[in-house]
Amino acid sequence: MAVEMIADMELVFKYPESLTPRVTHYCPGCTHGVIHRLIAEVIDELGVRERTIGVAPVGCAVLAYDYFNMDFCEAAHGRAPAMATGIKRVSPDKVVFTYQGDGDLAAIGTSEIIHTANRGELITTIFVNNAIYGMTGGQMAPTTLPGQVTTSSPRGRDVETAGWPMKMAELIGMLSGAAYVTRQAVLDVPGIRRTKKAIKLAFQVQLAGLGFSMVEILSTCSTNWGVSPLEALDWAKQNMLPYYPLGDTKVVDEVRALMAKP
């Protein structure tokens, strides 16, 4: 019966070629999986899989190279943008992207991301912000919210001593080398669709040689937040969205022209 049905049906959602068949090590409901898939779909749609080189971070996504069906390397903690710079400079015809979490990009790798963006390196950064260190077991991240309890801020993040959560999309957006910087969220279906559009635009910006592009993506960590996957989506909406407003923080005119194209 199924075959009969497929005959007059069209495939509207399929497994992307840019993902390997491996099941990820991510916890149930972890939105890393969604973001991986969106990147893979975009790379498929742009037809650049065979000339894309990815750079994995240290953090939960350290094994990203097992899941992306393309050339990949694994950077030292925080150094993915430097590594991507090295790759892109000697292989300017390749599509190069980094995939980084909040500890990787906004703490230990702050210097590298700022200078890479500021140089206008023709790479794309996918920045996954879930307000916590996942891999090491739920410590305070640079993006942890004020008052948020983590294993290293057991009484909640005290901004008097730990400072304020880093707003990376705003910070990177200020830099002249950044052509397109946006903050999106994969907390519901419309948000996921908008995030995919943003990722696609970010890669198109690189392909058009317009400058550095970054998509910050609000994501979840149900395990370390101590809630169910479904509750995690709500927790992020209630707690992260007010502090991390969605939207573009940098769109240069050339990118705007690119957006206007059908």
Partner: peptide, 16 residues
């Protein structure tokens, strides 16, 4: 921007 960035750029270019 630093020696740390330098060596990781070297690492990237060497991987390429």
């Amino acid at each position: 921007e630093s020696e740390i960035a330098s060596i990781n750029m070297v690492y990237g270019a060497a991987c390429a």
